[in-house]
Amino acid sequence: MGIEKTRHFIYLALLSAMAIVLSIAESVYIGPVFYMVRLGLANIIALITIKIMGVREMIAVNVMRVVISTLMRGMIFSSTFWISLGGVVLSSIALILMDKLKSSLMFTSIICSIMHSVGQVIVVCLFYMQSGVAVILPYLLLGSIPMGVLTGLTAQLVLSRIRPLKKNKI
């Protein structure tokens, strides 16, 4: 394994670890900001990963984040796991599309945040037969916009500071 490949895996592991820690810290210490609207701090890492490493790495970080954080909280394959996975799958698809369309980081972040909420509601409606939860979708959509701005701003700030790493071909 070449030094570049080792470095690549180290960065992937570091980003995954950061996403897992943010995900757990948010669910344990912060909780919902407004009813069911959460900050979505782990999305910052997904945004950073796609920008500095690529699509495949972003998917790996997102999947590891959902699986390991729910596993560590003893919720693997529980409702929380499937809802998180639903949100992450849809937000990852949106992130890939936005990246291909060369959208701005802020717009990508807002769309991802919205898609995350939509994905979660779809899972609850379809798999848990709780159609009543669709009532909260407009509130989640509205709440997702400021949360997306917040995560987008943070990712922008981080990317401006770690840009030199990009030149080293992570």
């Binding site: 669910s27 069911m36 909280r73 529980s78 929380t80 009543g132 009532v135 909260i136």
Partner: peptide, 23 residues
């Protein structure tokens, strides 16, 4: 195991949010 319903706090009749406990 996730206390989302407890964290949702108080609801009243002007509030259209249902309190949901999925587990």
């Amino acid at each position: 195991y996730d206390y989302t319903c407890k964290n949702m706090g108080w609801a009243d009749q002007n509030n259209l949010f249902p309190i949901i406990c999925l587990p």
